[in-house]
Design a protein around this nucleic acid. Structure first.
Lengths: 341, 341
DNA sequence: CTGAAAGCGCTTACAG
DNA sequence: CTGAAAGCGCTTACAG
């Protein structure tokens, strides 16, 4: 049998007001004897306030929403784990919403979660090239009434806090590594064109080439969609174009590129060097461990939580956008090009 | 500005009762004209009922809890994705709780979620060998008051519905495959000893050997913990003992076994055949794709959801335990032993 | 030092 | 065909 605050009050011979004050640690002038008795009785019945009644009055739920494009993707799964850990530690619960990378679902998920009553929202946006929908989404978010922070991705024109890795710097570091090895014919497998993270990483690639005086060759850019298969087909294209090295905009596509190289009887890194982006767990246990840009997922989750938590607790904090430092992890998938070993 | 049912009622010139009846599709005798007007106004303001007020009255939250040992593990991440999909489709939200495989946290998570108000619970238990804690946990679950179903794992003595793959049959199929290839010195890397899934899979291994007339050799069983590293060290042990084939109780440990084999200058499958369990996405893109026992994760998620949903909607349904059929996927990591090719 | 009472936003018998 | 009112279980000014 579930007990209410009235049950406790009755048994303690006090009013519900008094019980509420004590159990919530609110400023009060209740005698220690009475307070102790109340706490004892509450403990005895394992009393916990009804979540809905509290929410109805306080408008607080101690729940946040986490919207993710694909929880089955290791990167986002680890992110969810990180955020969940911080939530739990701070007494919050986390409602997860998976959008399957469907921007339409970003919208419905936000509406749904806000209507259910959440205190805040962390959103890793789906990749979306539709400007009109983006505008509508921004409008929706603008008068959301609950704080939210953008994670990993971003929408042009958004007004909120956010955190991501420094995507372009990461793309630049990956490409620079290949250049410093002596490669000049370097292909790039992008994420979905038009999407924020894809364009930022590509920008880093182009920047590195330009800085090194290597003319940017549009035909050495092949569009992928962050999935394994697209990495494989893009790599085939690039190999046809005679690249000696490939920067894949995420590890999953890098794995696809491995497969393309191997299916032609070629070898990584002897024939084609490959750099990834993310540093998934699996990148390190491949037969030829992958050189890649490491993202600290726990740090990403923590920053997102910190940004949100500050805004949960205090009103009117200015927006902040934090970009985490990428790290180049050199493993066995990159080597100097054939002529220069 | 958030609108309430009173705002809608006022503008439609009707009572809140009428609005509530119409918007909830309850049996009513409201004229179609009035009903239409109400729906229009509600739509105009994007009205959604306050979740807490509804919950306070109906005692229903349309929220379920999903307790998982490790969301960063691909297997559970895909499970979460599957369950989330069914929840969403049925109008439910899912609160995720990650226990980091800490049985203590299973307990606190259950308590927390139930106090927050959830309609039901799906639990993939942490591995626990502590009988006393298990007993306490069962007692807690027994008078929980909300339906729950066990997913993947199980606790001896539990009274609830559940679904998992047929672990022992899977272990048997994996081992039989190795036997049919001609192996007789077959090692087994188990999950955490004493845990349900580990013991079931091991039982399948032993059963297959016995059936084939191969004497069971205790020294060919090495305990792991379902993590990569443990697979590697266990494989080293088994190779020292002269096995020609290894059944690893999950894919992650199979990857570890690959590494052990390779670090000795040996080769999979030429020197050691390896079978895994789970069939993670990565098993298929390894340089030597892994022969393994496939679990249909979407089916697992769907069954768990179905079992829960039935019990959410109807009282007094009998407990059911469903075991899903495992499937052997033969790839390149298994071959006949050297003498028999 | 403590309590009575209003109110959060709904749903649902019940009355007419 | 429609509405007034009770009640869900809390929190919080306010009164004494």
């Amino acid at each position: 049998m579930k007990h209410t605050i009235r049950d406790i009050a009755r048994e303690a011979n006090v009013s519900v007001t008094t019980v509420s004050l004590i159990l919530n640690g609110k400023p009060n002038t209740v005698s220690e004897a009475t307070a102790g008795r109340i706490r004892e009785i509450a403990a005895k019945y394992n009393y916990a306030p009804n979540h809905f009644a509290v929410g109805l009055v306080t408008k607080k739920t101690n729940t946040i929403g986490l919207i993710l494009p694909d929880i089955a993707n290791t990167f986002f799964a680890e992110l969810a784990k990180s955020v969940d850990g911080f939530c739990t530690a701070s007494g919050y619960s986390m409602i997860l919403s998976n959008t399957n990378n469907d921007p339409e679902k970003d919208l419905t998920a936000v509406t749904l979660l806000v209507n259910r009553g959440i205190d805040g929202l962390i959103i890793a946006f789906s990749q979306d090239e539709n400007k009109e929908r983006s505008a509508a989404f921004i409008a929706l978010l603008d008068d959301l009434g609950v704080p939210f922070v953008a994670l990993d991705s971003w929408i042009e024109g958004l007004k909120c806090s956010g955190v991501s890795i420094h995507h372009s710097k990461g793309g630049m570091m990956a490409t620079n590594h290949l250049i410093s090895l002596g490669h000049t014919r370097i292909g790039c497998i992008t994420g979905p064109r038009g999407s924020y993270t894809a364009e930022r990483r590509l920008k880093g690639y182009i920047g590195a080439l330009t800085e090194a005086g290597i003319p940017f060759d549009e035909t050495l850019v092949a569009a992928g969609d962050y999935q394994f298969d697209s990495g494989s087909s893009a790599a085939h294209l690039l190999i046809d174009r005679g690249v000696t090295a490939i920067f894949a905009s995420n590890d999953l596509m890098a794995y696809g590129a491995y497969q393309a190289v191997q299916s032609r009887g070629l070898n990584v890194p002897d024939d084609v060097s490959i750099v990834g982006f993310d540093d998934l767990f699996f990148s390190n246990i491949l037969q030829t461990p992958l050189t890649t840009i490491h993202q600290s997922v726990p740090a990403l989750g923590q920053e997102a939580w910190n940004l949100l938590y500050d805004r949960l607790k205090h009103d009117g904090i200015d927006d902040e956008y934090r970009q985490l430092e990428p790290h180049l992890i050199i493993r066995d998938s990159t080597i100097a090009p054939k002529g220069r070993r």
